[in-house]
Amino acid sequence: MEYFLIIISAIFVNNIVLAQFLGICPFLGVSNKLSTATGMSMAVCFVITLATLVTYLINKYLLIPFNITFLQTIAFILVIAALVQMVEIVLKKTSPSLYQALGIFLPLITTNCAVLGVAIDVVTKQFTFGGEAHFLNLGEAMVYAFATSLGYGLAMVIFAGIREHLAMNDVPKAFKGVPIALISVGILALAFMGFSGMVK
């Protein structure tokens, strides 16, 4: 039951893009076409889940025991950068087709703040999910990270669909490109606000 609440909360109620403002740059950057949006979402999904696993363990077994949590930001970003590189190399060797699909998005992910944001949130914030406020254990953290990245994918795919239609319309010159995209995201966020308070 709790895992179910985590999933609903992370995908709809606290959607990472529309409610938490994380990962907006790539969200605006690659949502022009449905196909690239799907590719990016899959790459993000992969990296967020993996990065959260590794940073959670590093935080628990390295930073906290040695009392050096002030190095958290540095350690996490280095882990993410290294991880992205490794994923890139491994994919290139083992699955060229997947590499072709995700390859160009991987380098962009290092500076996608959604990845670092989720990694930091998971180890520093207390969550409730219907029960007492508590820090997440490893299982919950993994479910949360995976569901959050699904939420990212959902927002991305919906928005790419909207943008494909926008591109065909006659938009006033000053509104062209990012401004009209931002206004559309605002309306999308308004719709997602209907979920707020559903899961605490």
């Binding site: 207390q126 969550f127 409730t128 406020a133 707020s196 308070g197 605490k200």
Partner: peptide, 9 residues
């Protein structure tokens, strides 16, 4: 004293 509000703890 802690409890759960609308948006969280």
């Amino acid at each position: 004293s802690g409890t759960i509000g609308f948006g969280g703890p």
